[in-house]
Design a protein around this nucleic acid. Structure first.
Ligand SMILES: [Zn+2]
Ligand SMILES: [Zn+2]
Ligand SMILES: [Zn+2]
Ligand SMILES: [Zn+2]
Lengths: 155, 155
DNA sequence: TAGCGTTCACAAGGTTCA
DNA sequence: TGAACCTTGTGAACGCTA
């Protein structure tokens, strides 16, 4: 449903053919704008239509909330192409609000990169996995549903 | 695995709600929908009514279980048209569950002749490192557990 | 036509460099 | 931080055979 809901949050003039909307396939060109900052966006990143910079931002910061400087204003900063650098806290908050999902971040080296042995790598993955499983929804369906208020949980 | 579990409620204005609901569950076989993801299906592939993408997915991944990233969630991901890309492990598990058979994959030319581009790329890296086509466990549970010792399949 | 394989452009993940 | 790039997986289109 990610594509659906992402599309519905786009401006009306975004061209979406009936066919592409029905298909939701790879070649249904999603010409639109980043749901976070409004920059041009072509693909879905981490579950929501977003620009390249917000994609990278989200991967870097998604799991590092505690390291983000808290909002210096009212916690409701407007995120635009020009202002997106000003407040990381509100930018990340908006990323999550518009439907980007941490669970789609596959980065394996959340801690550091020095571990090389296969055993340690697996240990690391298990730690990551436990962390994710304990704190986040466990079904891709949930991940792809930006707006959960309308949904009845299938599980 | 309950296929009807994905009969979640979409917002009213989603035009494909009815259609999407019909694609799932017991109606699928009668009305020509993929038993794996619910996409439109017209023919039987590898022993089960399935869409073109799940057909290709199964042929590619059916014998590469060990290369599939284990489920990052609870091993019971819901597979839909939109979510099918999120978790390959659960998608393959569902392929097997709904009756797709790896025995119907003709893979006699994996080593020579024209490989698909994806395989070619991998061949460049590790010369098809003796991924012997010997029978892997066909049990989807094995697939979901893989080497993650701390994961128990809820199925 | 059914059902299998092949191809290739693109989606979406990560990485690098300035 | 973000543009450019790298890597892998995907799926629509197509080709082949019975
Ligand atoms: Zn953006
Ligand atoms: Zn702020
Ligand atoms: Zn399918
Ligand atoms: Zn899964």
């Amino acid at each position: 449903m990610a594509y659906h809901q992402s599309l519905f949050k786009l401006p009306e003039f975004v061209p979406v053919t009936t066919d592409s909307a029905k298909r939701q396939g790879r070649y249904a060109a999603r010409e639109g704008y980043c749901l976070v900052c409004g920059d041009t966006a072509r693909i879905v990143n981490y579950g929501a239509l977003s620009c390249a910079s917000c994609k990278t931002f989200f991967r870097r910061r998604g799991f590092r909330i505690e390291k983000i400087e808290p909002c210096r204003f009212n916690g409701n900063c407007d995120i635009t192409l020009q202002s997106r650098r000003v407040c990381s806290a509100c930018r990340l908050a908006k990323c999550l609000t518009i439907g980007m999902s941490r669970d789609l971040i596959r980065k394996e080296d959340l801690n550091e990169r020095s571990l090389c042995s296969t055993v340690k790598r697996k240990q690391k993955q298990n730690i990551i996995q436990q962390t994710r499983m304990s704190s986040f929804p466990v079904n891709p369906l949930d991940l792809l549903n930006n707006d959960r208020s309308d949904l009845t949980s299938p599980n």
